[in-house]
């Protein structure tokens, strides 16, 4: 009975201490030593097999199809660094839109030092972020990477052209998305790093990765431009592309900056 009202004064104490921050000086000095960290820049270089990818240039694929690219954007999310000592660093709110004509670097500030055995990430956006309403930052629904009539993110967007395209205007349009069921298009990727991927305190490192746009079109599934030149929904075709692009990113180099 008496304890019933006890929470009221307590509540006001809490309010009191929280509401008027500026009246009180924080006097405790931080005595805990900051753990050693390094900064890691993850850079994506875009290629068509062994050639550098430029807008509007023609590239040949195995099997003699060719293509050029105008738009090539994709999500990289849920980045994890797995250290050889067993520790795992997971980036907070890890969602990055990579654009071959724009942002192609992800900076992880203040990650633990040590030897990284592998980097794990997702190409695409996990299903949780596809069902939780409007997001901000790289996940803003205004970046042309969000379907508004069939809610969900476009995981990978490719627009270009090919003389082999079955489209009357010779275009190639692939908006690959879909986050649930058999046809989901997000893919988890593991890339193992060589032993030089070791980071020391207070230093900057660059992990250089290659994104090979040509790998959208071959690998697990051979894409025939004459019949398959347009995709804008979640379906089997989209998940075929995903099976291919799962292998489009590879290790290039690791160095101190």
């Amino acid at each position: 009975m008496t304890s019933r009202y006890l929470h009221i004064p307590l509540l006001f104490f809490i309010l009191l201490s929280g509401a008027c921050k500026k009246d009180k000086e924080v006097t405790t000095t931080n005595t805990i030593p900051t753990p050693p960290t390094a900064n890691l820049h993850i850079h994506f270089s875009h290629q068509a097999d062994s050639l550098t990818l430029f807008p509007g240039q023609s590239y040949t694929l195995p099997g003699n199809q060719s293509y050029s690219v105008d738009v090539f954007k994709y999500y990289i999310s849920n980045i994890e660094l797995h250290y050889t000592n067993g520790n795992v660093f997971k980036e907070d709110y890890s969602y990055h839109l990579i654009d071959f004509k724009g942002k192609s670097e992800i900076i992880l500030n203040k990650v633990p030092i040590g030897k990284i055995g592998l980097i794990k990430f997702m190409i695409g956006v996990d299903s949780a972020k596809n069902v939780s309403g409007p997001q901000t930052g790289d996940l803003s629904p205004s970046l042309g990477m969000f379907w508004s009539w069939n809610t969900g993110y476009i995981m990978v967007k490719f627009e270009g052209a090919s003389p082999q395209s079955g489209d009357p205007n010779k275009q190639l349009v692939y908006h690959i998305g879909g986050f649930k069921g058999l046809n989901k298009a997000q893919r988890t990727v593991f890339i193992t790093l060589p032993s030089k991927a070791t980071m020391e305190n207070n230093k900057n490192y660059e992990l250089s990765l290659i994104t090979n746009a040509s790998r959208l079109f071959y690998g697990t599934h051979q894409i025939d431009f004459s019949t398959n030149y347009f995709t804008m929904s979640s379906n089997k075709n989209a998940s075929d592309f995903a099976d291919n692009y799962m292998h489009m990113i590879s290790y290039k180099n690791f160095s101190e900056q």
Partner: peptide, 14 residues
């Protein structure tokens, strides 16, 4: 097709 009331208005606007 739309899975959240807060993204629904994107459909008519876009």
């Amino acid at each position: 097709g739309v899975n959240h009331i807060e993204v629904q208005p994107l459909a008519p606007i876009n």
